[in-house]
Design a protein around this nucleic acid. Sequence first.
DNA 1: GGCTTTGTGTTATAAAGTTTCAACGCAACA
DNA 2: TGTTGCGTTGAAACTTTATAACACAAAGCC
Lengths: 164, 164
Amino acid sequence: MSTNPAENPAFASHDHSDCVERVLATAETLCKDRKVRLTPIRRQALEILISEHKALGAYDILAELSARGQAAHPPVAYRALDFLVTHGLAHKIERLAAYVACAHPGERHRPAFLICRICQLVAEAHVPNNEGALGSAAKALGFQIEETVIEAEGICPECQKAAA
Amino acid sequence: MSTNPAENPAFASHDHSDCVERVLATAETLCKDRKVRLTPIRRQALEILISEHKALGAYDILAELSARGQAAHPPVAYRALDFLVTHGLAHKIERLAAYVACAHPGERHRPAFLICRICQLVAEAHVPNNEGALGSAAKALGFQIEETVIEAEGICPECQKAAA
DNA sequence: GGCTTTGTGTTATAAAGTTTCAACGCAACA
DNA sequence: TGTTGCGTTGAAACTTTATAACACAAAGCC
């Protein structure tokens, strides 16, 4: 898996079924290692998320789960998403109140996201754990960071071309 | 107004009525300059926000406005907050779905926030426009950033002491 | 098997944010 | 001195996002 942002595939066309298989396999392994259960609902939720690079709302996931025959009450989706987020298999995009599959499952990382406001695609950039500016501001204040939310909204290369 | 994060007052006690007066005065000037109206509702919303360094939900503002005799329908609060955010007088903390008064009104800046998950205080750090890691990731991908959300959740110095 | 832990099904409800339309207020300007 | 235009406010209804609570089922363990 590439760690070079320039090779991030989200904004470029690529073989997606590959992508899906790869992440699902990693998820299986990761859950086995941690002795947690990737139950059918959780697996399907992840599958639905990876099938898009878009961020999906909890209720989008819910609708898709329901279409696949699962019970369709909100807690079903939220519980699956909580599990995925807790185990680093998915991330929440706060700006959109929506979720994306993690592009680097298993790797320790502070995720950062580039959100296209035209096509809704979301790319996960690989940002070093030491947040330059944010990290030093926290250090200077004596603030102890536990989690970070780093999101940029703007226009992806494809949509810039389309607009030009 | 200090631009040195080490002097950021949010996590230290300080004369708060000063703070309120200063920001309100700046807001008045800024609105006059831009020929937009800091109406009573908007002014009160800002006043309510500055009175705390905490992030307040739209419905908290709404309740307080209502207590002061204003109409108490959600759009009242959201419209006031939209105005404040648009003109850089307040920021939305996505992580909390809540709002804080801007600590540097008028200055061009990409805000970054340190959110204490114990006492709910929020400090606004002064981060340079050039987002180190995020900026270069965007550049590498050809992504054009319009807005950024940079938030860290953790424990502030006071609460660390209290816990020790 | 019996016990414990973890996950699921379901109802209900809370919290956050939007749409819509009518009416008001105030400034500009003939 | 109207009256016209535009930004602001009042109000009702509604949508979207998220959680609480509780009963039941299924898996893991001795």
